Amino acid sequence: MKTYIFNILLALSFAAKGQSNTVNYKYLIVPEKFSFLKQPNQYNLNTLAKALFEDKGFTVYYDNTEIPSEIATDRCKALVIDVEEHNSMFVTNLTFVLKDCKGNVVLKSKEGKSREKEYKQSYNAAMRDAFSSFGDIHYEAGSTPAANFTVTTTPAPEVKTVAPTPVTQPAVATTKQSEALLYAHPINNGYQLIDSAPKIVLTLLKTTVADYYIASNTSTNGVVLKKDGNWFFEYYKDNALVSEKLSIKF
């Protein structure tokens, strides 16, 4: 009878070992900073955790990097690597905890211990000791873990395509020739162009560009500029660009 019970317990222990060492999750996510640390990747613990699981065949991403769309749209396809600290005097104690998308503990290591005095060495040794309890843990392709969970997704809002408003191109510039000679009379911020009447034909305001003025009269606004040694008053009329050649005496 005792032998029979012993054989059953032995079989159950092997079954439990097999279950604990096989994980159907391919992807793991490690935070850039564990909660018990003060700085991201302090003592290189986050890098060490990532490397330990990658050595076992898992694909591991930091939570602050770009994650593939396969798990970005369904976090239930990945487990989150967490590390818990339960230090006592002179002993560093760390435990690995793997959680699913709902925060449920899927796998937990033993409490890794280290008595090293230097912090970095102590934390690294304790983490490796904790990880050693996973034995030959590895990813095994099979059923999709996410199939056991219901994920509610909000459909993307319908995007209505709005046809761009056609841009009306101005008509080809027409050029006019002004016969009258205009005299440039200086004012504080530019010039007044006066004909022989005398009458103010245009007011020119200076800009930061040489030989380029903002121009206006009682009916039109435009610019006066110098091109190829000649002065032109350019403005729009009925959506058509008009370029009027001027004779100006400064």
Score class of each variant (00 low, 15 high):
Leu246Val: 04
Ser243Pro: 11
Pro186Asn: 00
His138Ile: 03
Val209Arg: 08
Leu12Tyr: 06
Pro155Asp: 13
Tyr4Cys: 10
Gln169Asp: 12
Ser69Ile: 12
Tyr43Thr: 04
Gln121Met: 13
Asn188Tyr: 08
Asn221Lys: 05
Arg128Lys: 15
Phe58Val: 01
Asp63Leu: 06
Asp238His: 11
Met1Gln: 12
Asp228Gly: 11
Leu225Phe: 06
Gln39Met: 14
Gln192Cys: 07
Ala171Ser: 10
Glu84Trp: 10
Lys77Thr: 00
Thr175Met: 08
Val159Asp: 09
Thr207Gly: 03
Glu158Asp: 13
Ile8Gln: 04
Gln39Gly: 01
Val159Arg: 11
Gln192Phe: 12
Val97Cys: 12
Ser88Met: 14
Cys76Met: 00
Glu244Val: 08
Thr161Met: 15
Gly222Glu: 05
Val224Pro: 01
Asp55Thr: 14
Asn7Arg: 03
Gly103Lys: 14
Phe134Val: 00
Pro40Arg: 01
Leu28Asp: 02
Glu158Met: 15
Leu79Arg: 00
Thr207Leu: 06
Leu45Tyr: 02
Asn7Cys: 13
Glu179Gly: 06
Met127Ala: 13
Thr150Phe: 05
Val80His: 10
Asn44Pro: 04
Val209Asp: 06
Glu66Asn: 08
Ala240Thr: 01
Val209Cys: 08
Ile187His: 04
Ala16Thr: 03
Glu116Cys: 13
Arg75Val: 14
Tyr4Leu: 09
Leu225Val: 09
Leu45Val: 01
Leu79Pro: 01
Leu202His: 08
Leu10Ile: 06
Ala147Phe: 04
Leu79Gln: 02
Leu48Val: 03
Lys2Gly: 15
Ala156Met: 12
Tyr43Gly: 11
Leu246Asp: 05
Asn221Phe: 05
Ala146Tyr: 00
Val23Lys: 01
Asn64Gly: 03
Lys26Leu: 09
Leu98Tyr: 06
Ala184Asn: 05
Ser13Cys: 14
Glu84Ser: 11
Lys176Thr: 14
Ile187Val: 13
Ala163Ile: 13
Glu158Leu: 15
Ala141Ser: 12
Ala130Phe: 06
Thr47Gln: 07
Ser88Pro: 10
Asp55Cys: 11
Ala240Tyr: 04
Ile81Lys: 02
Ala184Tyr: 10
Ile71Phe: 02
Asn44Ile: 07
Ser133Gly: 07
Ser13Thr: 12
Thr47Phe: 09
Glu54Phe: 05
Tyr139Asn: 04
Gly142Arg: 10
Gly222Thr: 00
Val242Lys: 15
Phe6Gly: 00
Leu52Lys: 00
Gln177Arg: 10
Glu85Ala: 13
Val159Lys: 13
Ala141Lys: 14
Ala141His: 12
Val97Arg: 09
Ser196His: 09
Gln121Trp: 10
Asp211Met: 03
Gln42Trp: 04
Thr152Tyr: 14
Phe34Gln: 07
Val30Asp: 04
Ala146Val: 01
Tyr4Ala: 14
Leu241Tyr: 06
Asp129His: 13
Lys113Asp: 04
Ser216Met: 03
Lys249Cys: 04
Leu28Arg: 07
Phe232Lys: 05
Asp136Val: 13
Tyr61Arg: 02
Phe34Ala: 05
Thr220Asn: 12
Glu244Cys: 07
Phe131Ile: 02
Asn24Val: 00
Ser143Cys: 06
Thr168Val: 15
Ile200Lys: 15
Ile8His: 09
Gly190Val: 04
